[in-house]
Simulated scan of single mutants.
Amino acid sequence: MNTPAVRLTDLRRVHRGVTALDGVRLDFARGSFTAVMGPSGSGKSTLLNCAAGIDRPTSGRVEIDGVPLDGLGERRLALLRRERVGFVFQAYNLIPSLTAAQNVALPLRLAGRRPSRAAVLDALERVGLRERAGHRPAQLSGGQQQRVALARALITRPAVLFGDEPTGALDTVTSREVLTLLRGLVDTAAQTVVMVTHDPVAASFADRVVFLVDGRVAGEMAAPAADAVAARLAGLEAVPC
């Protein structure tokens, strides 16, 4: 399909009198990995939440997998998010009393579907944790817990996977393992990934970096190198408001 996995058109979001997004226009191509960066308060998380259908924009349009979200009621929007969107946060948000396999199966169970054992194990296999299916979160390292959270996001085979600082709570080595895994999902499974990060090294795993300043797109960088990203970000942060 030639349509992007996500399309944002003239996106504007005003919350309590503050303009968090101001006319953002972006496409996220299928099978691509995009990092979103910018100074604190630039609108990164708001962009992610609107693009994922978690928050509704004040004006403008969001399309996921070719479906415009503005015409959907809450029930249909929730269904689309459940089936076509995956989300991974900095916090793993795993249920301590459930095994890795049970945590991965949870989104489908909450949707009233009975996931097959094979589908759950396949999701864990994709993140390299099939052999840990019976382990609870306390028996797993931080990186393994984040990979379980990633498998949980992938169980529905989403059109797009959003990550909000997904490696922010991990050490350097573990962070690179998770980023390598995300890169592999893009390269081998044509998964679309959109990730907010503050880390230039994390951004260097992406195909492109989109920079935001004051809720507006302030430029892009293709095939980003960590040092070039860091220099660009430092320049943006030095610009007076």
Rank of each mutant, 00 (worst) to 15 (best):
V62A: 11
E63Q: 12
D65A: 15
G66C: 12
G66D: 03
G66K: 14
G66E: 05
G66Y: 08
P68S: 07
L69F: 09
D70I: 03
D70P: 00
G71C: 08
L72S: 07
L72Q: 09
G73W: 02
G73Y: 03
G73K: 04
G73N: 13
E74Q: 13
R75H: 14
R75N: 14
R75P: 04
R76H: 13
L80Q: 10
R81A: 14
E83C: 06
R84T: 06
G86R: 04
F87P: 06
F87L: 15
F87V: 15
F87W: 14
F87K: 07
V88S: 12
F89H: 13
Q90D: 13
Q90S: 14
Q90G: 14
A91P: 09
A91Y: 09
Y92D: 02
Y92W: 15
Y92T: 05
L94Y: 08
L94K: 02
P96I: 06
S97T: 15
L98W: 04
T99R: 07
A100L: 02
Q102N: 09
Q102D: 13
N103M: 05
N103Y: 04
N103L: 04
N103Q: 10
N103S: 07
V104G: 00
V104H: 01
V104R: 01
L106Q: 07
L106T: 06
P107G: 02
P107V: 07
P107K: 06
R109G: 00
R109D: 04
A111Y: 09
A111T: 05
G112L: 10
G112A: 08
G112S: 04
G112V: 08
R113V: 11
R113I: 11
P115S: 07
P115N: 08
P115G: 05
S116M: 10
S116H: 12
S116W: 13
L121K: 02
L121I: 06
L121P: 02
D122H: 08
L124G: 03
E125P: 06
R126S: 12
V127T: 04
V127F: 01
G128I: 02
L129K: 00
R130I: 03
R130S: 13
R130T: 10
R132L: 05
H135Y: 09
H135I: 04
P137F: 01
A138S: 14
A138Y: 05
Q139W: 05
L140C: 05
L140F: 03
S141I: 05
S141T: 08
S141Y: 04
S141E: 07
S141N: 05
G142Y: 03
G143K: 00
G143R: 01
G143E: 01
Q144H: 01
Q145K: 03
